[in-house]
């Protein structure tokens, strides 16, 4: 059987987010190891238009399914659409983005298809005709190696791990598959955008986080200034959130968000295991703290001992200087 790999590219509010291109690059990696062919799906109320943006070399074909009811994240209708694609095609791997919607959809389909589901994978490959993937569990303390045993394996790509597939040249061949949704037990009522204009933690390339060491809520002012200078999202430790200095949506760690940015700057965060669990797989970790012996300073790639209120303004000034003003 020909080895076909399907990348599920999910739009968010009418545009293609970075996660769609991460899934494509994971699919291309898998294909390159297994003489496979990469296919993509674009399911949306304006699928044909959006599919033009998937101009990533190496895509065999984009399956476009278009319907007004596909304009929102309705899991059931999307699942119906994906099942429609599977009616006429067999895939050894179906890759989903690790967004909330991607995860929900993959989980729903895994039991409908009675297929294996590898969640939040950080590596994927093929060995002796079997899909192999790695994922972390126990909050980063254990790495599991998984193996698919059946014809089709579903995989969810952990966000910010796979590089974004590069775009170039012409749009890929697009096949429009007619789709008429059946009745759904879920009704999409409305979407409420995040009120702040801040960068989303989960997909941020850079994050600046503040902790107890800031001393008070005012401290997040310099955290935000540093975040602005670095074009970073703002994170926080549980201690800072519990103290009421910043909203829960900024919390990084076991009971908050798990993040994998290229750069994580921890300011006044001692690095309790619960916090480390949410960020220790970040690319470069910078720690600023008065206590050189705290766990965060030991974990960090780069550690600077000193007073936050002295260091941070100097760092901001230095960045601005180097940018030429």
């Amino acid at each position: 059987m020909e080895n076909q790999i399907l990348a599920i590219c999910l739009p968010q509010q009418g545009t293609l987010p970075s996660s769609a291109f991460e899934v494509l690059s994971a699919a291309k990696t898998l294909a390159s190891q297994s003489q496979g062919k990469v296919f993509a799906s674009l399911i949306s109320d304006k699928a044909q238009t959006l599919a033009q943006n998937l101009n990533v070399p190496g895509i065999e074909k984009v399956f476009a399914l278009e319907h007004p009811k596909l304009g929102h994240n309705n899991d059931e209708i999307y699942a119906q659409a994906i099942l429609k694609i599977l009616e006429g095609n067999k895939f050894s791997a179906i890759l989903f983005p690790g967004t909330i919607f991607g995860k929900s959809l993959a989980a729903l389909l895994s039991s409908k298809l009675k297929a294996g589901l590898a969640v939040d994978i950080t590596e994927v490959g093929m060995e002796n005709g079997k899909i192999k993937a790695k994922r972390s569990s126990y909050s980063g303390n254990a790495l599991a190696t998984l193996m698919g045993t059946q014809e089709t394996t579903l995989l969810i790509a952990l966000p910010m791990v796979f590089p974004q597939a590069e775009k170039s040249g012409n749009p890929p061949p697009i096949t429009l598959i007619p789709f008429e949704p059946k009745e759904s037990q879920m009704e999409y009522v409305s979407f409420q955008p995040e009120s702040s204009s801040e960068i989303d933690l989960g997909t941020a390339e850079r994050i600046v986080s503040g902790g107890r060491g800031l001393g008070n809520a005012e401290g997040f002012k310099i955290i935000r200034e540093l975040a602005n200078a670095l074009k970073a999202a703002v994170g926080a430790s549980r201690a800072a959130v519990d103290a009421g200095w910043i909203a829960y949506s900024h919390q990084v760690g076991l009971t908050g968000k798990t993040v994998h940015p290229k750069l994580y700057v921890a300011c006044g965060i001692s690095g309790q295991i619960q916090h480390l669990a949410g960020m220790s797989s970040s690319g470069t970790i910078v720690a600023l703290n008065t206590d050189p012996e705290c766990p965060m300073m030991k974990t960090a790639s780069l550690s600077v001992t000193g007073d936050l209120y002295e260091l941070i303004p100097l760092i901001i000034a230095e960045i601005k200087k180097r940018r030429g003003g």
């Binding site: 589901l117 254990a142 790495l143 050189p292 300073m297």
Partner: peptide, 21 residues
């Protein structure tokens, strides 16, 4: 019958030693 098997668990690779500035 498991469609996905856990082949093994291993310890995550250690982070490279940090640099004190």
């Amino acid at each position: 019958l498991e469609p996905l098997k856990i082949e093994k668990f291993s310890a995550p690779p250690p982070r490279p030693a940090g640099l004190k500035i």
